[in-house]
Design a protein around this nucleic acid. Structure first.
Lengths: 144, 144
DNA sequence: AGCATATGGTTGATATTGTCAACCATCTAG
DNA sequence: CTAGATGGTTGACAATATCAACCATATGCT
């Protein structure tokens, strides 16, 4: 087989496909980016848009648009920041929380399928490895 | 930290960014998809478009467009298939081969950076793991 | 207080990537 | 020789990503 990079492309591609299929089967039609943002808000209720952008490594402009749609769908709520009137805290609405639960289940199933061929040790090691690699790649950034 | 899926998103995102930065620094302006196709043709000179689509898990329509541009750029050549007049064999031109060498170097450097924090054993195991996972995800396909 | 600068967020423009379906020409099997 | 499969092309479009300009507010400095 080819390089680590190519292998990664393949894996994420397959993963996204499976995710999308399962969401569709469950009648969830939002694009993955929206679901990822929703998940991030669920994991850290009250986050600011800036933090989501940082956590998901995405452009803040993208977050603006995605959160706007999620709000329009009635899935999240925007609460004013107590001391900084520019910022807002984002939180799930009741509907958002319900959807998030369904998403979590599906995501867990996908992850389970992905690591099905691995031992528990391998699976745990894998996540650590992935995170270590990501850090390593981000490191370069700081030394231009 | 979050799920395996999220970790993967982050890793590939970081990897793509580093790749793009290095290509840009080297004055290579083609999008990643084109470079990936170029690489695939380089690895298997004489492939058919169909095979590239399968190897990269991409839509055949995408391959059509990408190869057309690569041909227009004078990076690849299209040779008629001896027995099937619908198909064509794709191969690198002299320019394409030169570019491919530069790409290979850059890709290797990125891969090296990515696995820099890992032991050799870990790095090898990682690729195997990734491939195993990809297979596992693709397997589901056949049992709807 | 008054200023420069940084920051959270928004917007517009645009490039890249991925998906789906219809379609043509050819090939292959029966 | 016909029916269906296959390689490839095309069109339309959705999704994802990037960049830069911009507004309003906040913060640090003097």
């Amino acid at each position: 087989m080819s390089s680590a990079g190519n292998a990664l492309f393949g894996l994420l591609h397959a993963y996204k496909r499976v995710l999308r299929e399962r969401y569709m089967a469950a009648g969830i039609i939002l694009p993955l980016s929206h679901l990822r943002v929703l998940g991030e808000i669920g994991r850290h209720e009250g986050v600011m848009a800036r933090e989501i952008a940082a956590a998901l490594l995405q452009d803040k402009g993208l977050i603006t648009r995605v959160t706007r749609e999620l709000e329009r769908e009635g899935l999240i709520e925007r609460h004013p920041h107590p001391t900084d009137s520019r910022a807002a805290h984002l939180a799930l609405s009741a509907n958002g929380r319900a959807l998030r639960e369904r998403i979590k289940t599906i995501e867990k199933a996908c992850d389970a399928q992905m690591v099905a061929a691995l031992s528990t040790d391998q699976a745990d090691a894998f996540i650590d490895t992935v995170n270590a690699m990501t850090e390593q790649l981000d490191r370069e950034q700081e030394t231009p």
